[in-house]
Structure formats: structure tokens, C-alpha cells
């Protein structure tokens, strides 16, 4: 029975930002689960609430935002109800996070060793020497050459890819059960991106940890994730096995996203695109938030659509007019 409990189960999560201009519903009723050892891709445009979902799980939503509703069950424990001390003891130890811009994630005025040793000592009562050993091993694990020397360096002496490796090594220090990766390869060169993806995939398989990979890039998750959640305007609009969603997208938005990735096969044809822009979170359209941009929209879309599984069990969609013909 123990194994049946998913590593993470998010239920109807709502994170709102209380700004002077009004309440921005950045995350508005998101539910998904991550099983042990599973890689889940969280895909959406910027402003779709995917990063806020990640920060809600780790309890680091910026002011003036806060989780207003829903459950974040981490191995059965509701993090939405956990106090600051409990969250702090989980962060970095059981749940770790990797950020988007490696140039910004390391403190520029502190040496790498300071920043890694403090991460070790935040959760373990060990001497500085032991902590340094742990940090060194973690650097070796992510493939950083001459780690002893590197530990004594400052972040600005590293390239972007190296810094992201350091960030990943830091996240791995305590062998967490769950890593939330918030677009960790977006700011990197394509070759480095490939290396990091390969590295992370390998580490996941070796350690058996679960991974939430947040990205706007479908091609990145395609080779990485087991399952995928597509987010639009604070809601998950489609969810399922990676092959189901990518090969037979049900939601018009997912369909549009896939269509707008340039591909070799469709060379010469005009690139499909989704018309319009992501709506303002302060002023979402009535009913389905996507309907103003949707080619299939009609009067029925003015009512908030329910989640259904029209094609296959475990492949859910929040749409009145899903693309069943492709399924």
C-alpha cells in the first residue's frame, strides 16, 4: 500500500495574487499527481501559471500571492497546511527546486562552497569538512571537473551551463524525493541544454526521484517526461501520458502548441500559429479562458467546461469540443 501513495498529489490548487489592480488568479484549480520516479511535464506559455504552481508546491510564492484553496499532498502530508518550520525542513531536503536563469540563482558575492555547505548544514548536523565532502561528491555527480578547485570559486567564474550544473548538484545534495525544475534549460545554449537534459534524465533513473519539469517547450518534454500537463490561464486544460497527448491532442490549445513547433516533416507549409495573446489574469474571459483564441469556439464555450476523458482513460481534457477525430 505504501507505494500506492503518490509522491505528490495536487488537488484543486488555487494561488491568487492580491494586487492593487485586483486579484490575479494565477493558478485556478489545478490538480495532478506525480508518482514515485515519474517525470511530469508542466507545459504552457508564460503567464499560464506553471511556475506559480511550482512555487506553490515548495511554498515560496512571492508577496502578494498566496495559496487560497486546495491541497498539496506530499507523501500524504498537506503542504498547504504546513507551517513555515515544517516547509523549511522539507525544502532542499525532500523537495528541491532548480530555477530558470542559472546566472541569477547563485549568490554573486558568496563562494560556491559557502552556498553548497550551507545547503548541507541546513538539514544535517555535520561538520563543515563533512559538508564539503558531500558538496564535492554532488559536483562530481553532475560532471563538474576538478570539483575541489571549483568549490573555492565565485559564481561569475562559471559559464551558464556550469552554474546550472552547480544548481542541480545543490538540489541533489539531500537526495530529495521530488525535484521541481522551472525551465532550467531555457537560458542555455542548445548543446548545453541537451547535456543537462541527458544528465537529469540519468540522475532521475539512478536515484528514483520524481521530477516536475516546467517548460514552454514541447520538444524538451517530449523526450523526457512520462506524463504531461498542459496549462492555460491558470488551469490544466489537458493531461495524460506523453504519447497520448502529443500524438492525439484533444484540446485545441494543445493542438495549436504542437502545430506551432517547426518540424522537418512539414517543411514548406506555413507554420500554424495560435492567434491572439494570453489573456490578462486580472480579467479572464468568461467560461473557457481559451475561447477567444479558439478556432472551434461557439456559444457553449461561455460556460466553464468540465474535465472529461472522451478518448481514453487517463487522458483528460477540459474542453466542450475536443479533437476526437484525431484520437
Amino acid at each position: 500500500m505504501e507505494d500506492e501513495t503518490p509522491t505528490l498529489a495536487v488537488e484543486d490548487l488555487k494561488t491568487h495574487f492580491f494586487t492593487k489592480l485586483g486579484v490575479a488568479e494565477a493558478v485556478n484549480g489545478v490538480s495532478f499527481t506525480v508518482k514515485k520516479g515519474e517525470v511530469v511535464g508542466l507545459v504552457g506559455e508564460s503567464g499560464s501559471g506553471k511556475s506559480v504552481t511550482g512555487f506553490s508546491i515548495i511554498g515560496l510564492v512571492d508577496h502578494p500571492g498566496r495559496v487560497v484553496e486546495g491541497k498539496i499532498l506530499f507523501k500524504g502530508e498537506d503542504l498547504a497546511q504546513a507551517d513555515d518550520d515544517r516547509m523549511r525542513s522539507l525544502r532542499g531536503r525532500r523537495i528541491a527546486m532548480i530555477f530558470q536563469d542559472p546566472m541569477m540563482t547563485l549568490n554573486p558575492v558568496l563562494r560556491i562552497d559557502t552556498q553548497m555547505i550551507e545547503a548541507v548544514q541546513a538539514h544535517e548536523q555535520v561538520s563543515e569538512k563533512e559538508a564539503r565532502e558531500t558538496a564535492r561528491d554532488a559536483l562530481v555527480q553532475v560532471g563538474i571537473p576538478s570539483p575541489d578547485e571549483r568549490l573555492k570559486s565565485y559564481p561569475h567564474q562559471f559559464s551558464g551551463g556550469m552554474r546550472q550544473r552547480v544548481a542541480i548538484a545543490t538540489a541533489l545534495l539531500h537526495k530529495p524525493d521530488l525535484i521541481i525544475a522551472d525551465e532550467p534549460t531555457t537560458a542555455l545554449d542548445v548543446t548545453i541544454q541537451g547535456q543537462i537534459l541527458h544528465e537529469v534524465q540519468k540522475l532521475c533513473r539512478e536515484t528514483g526521484m520524481s521530477l516536475i519539469w516546467i517548460t514552454h517547450d514541447l520538444s524538451v518534454v517530449a523526450g523526457l517526461a512520462d506524463r504531461i500537463c498542459v496549462m492555460y490561464a491558470g488551469q490544466i486544460v489537458e493531461r495524460g501520458e506523453i504519447s497520448d497527448v502529443l500524438d492525439h491532442p484533444l484540446h485545441p490549445y494543445t493542438n495549436g502548441l504542437i502545430g506551432s513547433v517547426p518540424s522537418h516533416n512539414r517543411r514548406g507549409q506555413p507554420l500554424a500559429q495560435i492567434p491572439g495573446m494570453t489573456p490578462s489574469l486580472l480579467n479572464l474571459p468568461e467560461g473557457c479562458a481559451f475561447h477567444p483564441r479558439c478556432p472551434r469556439a461557439d456559444g457553449a464555450c461561455f460556460v466553464q467546461p468540465q474535465v472529461t476523458e472522451p478518448a481514453k482513460l487517463g487522458h483528460e481534457v477540459r474542453c466542450v469540443h475536443p479533437h476526437l477525430e484525431q484520437a
Binding site: 528541491a96 527546486m97 530555477f99 549568490n107 541546513a122
Partner: peptide, 19 residues
């Protein structure tokens, strides 16, 4: 981001501010 990252590491709020 590096402050957020420090918090994400589980570093105490005191250390985040004082260091």
C-alpha cells in the same frame, strides 16, 4: 532569484537575511 534559491535549499530565514 538567488534569495529564492537559498530559501528553496531550506536555509533558515535568519541566514538568508544575515548572510
Amino acid at each position: 532569484d538567488y534569495i529564492k534559491f537559498a530559501r528553496a535549499k531550506g536555509v533558515s530565514e535568519k541566514r538568508v537575511i544575515l548572510v
